[in-house]
Design a protein around this nucleic acid. Structure first.
Lengths: 215, 215
DNA sequence: TAGATTGTTAATCGATTAACAATC
DNA sequence: TAGATTGTTAATCGATTAACAATC
């Protein structure tokens, strides 16, 4: 029931949040909800919620609201949580290991098929039942598993060569914790940059430049 | 030379990226740059760069461009990188440990003054020269160090109690890796939420819903 | 000076909010 | 039916881009 040709990224970035709130509602035994009630819980306007959902079709019922379970399932499908994309992780240092251990990949649309690292101190370690392999094995694993996603937890300097290999193996999506600008070099790639340092600096800014809102 | 009363978050969120690009330019011995040249490197419009920078004052020189080093310093000052905010980290599990090890806090405006965890398996561990303390010690450390920032790497369930303690001790900024909605309960708090799962789902969406841009 | 590039105003574009008719 | 709430169109708001006069 796709209504709009193009969904704006503003809308897309709100979907995972809807998905989380709906999950919680579901867990709390709430079976239906109005856009107004949901808007209050989420700190949005009811209008925005209705606009957002209507990008994908009419999931609600006039005079009644939305069925929580059904809406949760719909949004999951829209986000593609029902089909897992095979992914390789490059770099199993502090950050890579934390991500690999911490992230609930299977419920985020991802299936990890390989962990790689250059350092002999790290290769051979077992993380979540997977052995970290030396990066030389990347080619072979890609040829076998055909990953479409790569998770980059490597330093900026190591990224260009690795990304080049991955692109040639058909990887199209990058979850990028490195500071290498993938899209500059490969405009066709789909990239989600995670710049934790930027986020922390933004917090610092807000703290040190108090908005005189109530002036 | 603050021009605008209110700087929009759209602008603020671009500042750390400018800061990074300017740092790299500086490192590469480039001393001056025009908005056009910078726009090409960053994938923005020159117009936007000039608009952004002019929120804070005229840092450029007509007919000439911007001095890289000077602009870098200015943006650093705007972001508050020159004054470190004392911060405590709650939760030193996988994610907390990775963040603590990985993040260059001193260059992000933050000074870590304490690491806390509930689990006896974790307390006593030394991370970056700091010993992880049991959470019971939080009160004492807050009273002594007066942190203004907290980094939350704890599960959602543990967050309400911890946040309450922190708020009472005067913590105003939260770098929040948990899924607890701090602003809902404390609208006055400054919060940067890091929802890694949301980011990964957004990547998944983009991968599975290819934009027929060139249709 | 002439050429270049900023600072800044005006125009456009896109996202959010408001309003209300449709309808359950 | 009457009341409630959606789906959707219109109005508003804010952010980005374009244009150009100021000026180095």
């Amino acid at each position: 029931m796709a209504r709009n040709e193009h969904i704006s990224m503003s809308v897309v970035r709100r979907l995972p949040r809807y998905y989380r709130f709906l999950y919680d509602l579901k867990e709390n035994g709430i079976t239906r909800i109005s856009s107004r009630e949901l808007s209050q819980r989420m700190g949005l306007t009811a209008s925005q919620i209705r606009q957002d959902l209507n990008c994908f079709g009419g999931f609600g019922q006039q005079g009644y609201g939305y069925m929580v379970e059904q809406l949760y399932e719909e949004i999951g499908r829209i986000l593609g949580m029902d089909r897992l994309s095979p992914a390789v992780m490059l770099g199993a240092g502090n950050m890579g290991r934390a991500i690999a251990n911490h992230m609930d990949f299977e419920h985020r649309g991802i299936r990890l098929v390989g962990l790689f690292d250059d350092s002999p101190a790290v290769t051979g370690q077992v993380i979540r039942g997977m052995t970290v392999q030396p990066t030389e094995e990347l080619d072979a694993v890609c040829a076998k598993e055909h990953p479409t996603v790569a998770i980059l937890c490597i330093p900026k300097e190591a990224a260009p060569d690795i990304v080049d290999i991955l692109i040639r193996h058909g990887v199209r999506g990058f979850w990028n914790f490195s500071h290498y600008d993938i899209n500059y070099h490969y405009p066709e790639a789909v990239v989600e940059n995670v710049h934790l340092g930027d986020s922390l600096m933004t917090l610092s800014y807000q703290l040190k430049n108090p908005d005189r809102k109530e002036a």
